[in-house]
Amino acid sequence: MQYKDYYKIMGLTRDSNADAIKRAYRKLARKYHPDVSKEPQAEERFKELGEAYEVLRDPQKRAAYDHLGSTWQPGQEFTPPPDWQTEGFGFNRSTAAGGATANHFSDFFETLFGHAFHARPDASGTGARVRGQDQRAKVAISLDDAYRGTTHVIQVAVAEADATGNRGTRNHTLQVRIPSGIVQGQQIRLAGQGSPGMGGGPRGDLYLEVQLQPHPYFEAEGRDIYLNLPLTPWEAALGAQLTVPTLGGKVEVKIPAGSQAGQKLRLKGRGLGGKTPGDQYIVLQIVAPPALTPAAREAYERMSQELQFNPRSHMGV
């Protein structure tokens, strides 16, 4: 088990007072809150922060923690002092069947303070029939899988309490059928795959929040799909019948003569599915071929002579 430096986690010194601890917590909580933060590892940092605050905000726990001394280094292999249980701090491990929660603290915390401190009072030791808690996780799927639907094998850490009430997590492998037409940020529910209940209560549910992985050329915005379509100048000027990719496969699209860069064409109902499927938007882009050969140069020179065209006339130049 590794030692945790709760002061360092909160950016505090050992002599910080209660106000400073609260201020530091508020500030870092806003920074790392998983719903707000885009920092990498925000979830992990936030959890660590919650644990540090749990100890440092409570004078009794803080005193006990300080008593370990300041010579420990973060991550150092830690064993509690032999006199830990007899110090009179009263952190003996509780054997009550604490509610299993996904937000369990580190082994370091559990060893020092047991889990009596954050067990849900409503679920402990009453012997009542209690439904297991719902669990939440994220799942990354490709845009193609979102469009077609997919069977995904996922691993989730399910928090569980054993017969003696000790908490732990168990990696659980699930094969999940994800229906088609899912969009970014949407939740899906797997009934009965959350934490086990107590006293014969049913298991909670597992909720997965979908994160769409970036696609090489499609971009999803809600149910709509955007595609940048490069055209040659002559395809744009003369019009063309082109093959264009969609999530559902290739389609033929007529590009009208006189098209310009930035114009949008809509393929109705070619976006992500659902009751009202989204559309695919094709945004035209015009790419000039390089003038690498004498023949190519000649073609451009002929255009410059024959096409009286100044794209900057609106700027008065």
């Binding site: 037409g181 899906i188 909720y207 009751k275």
Partner: peptide, 25 residues
């Protein structure tokens, strides 16, 4: 065993009891 997921979209309905139970509300 494959578990089928339910999408929580606009067409899906949650009761007050389901919401309160899931969220501890």
């Amino acid at each position: 065993m494959t578990i089928t997921a339910t999408v929580l979209d606009e067409d899906m309905t949650l009761t007050v009891a389901q919401l309160c139970e899931s969220l501890g509300l």
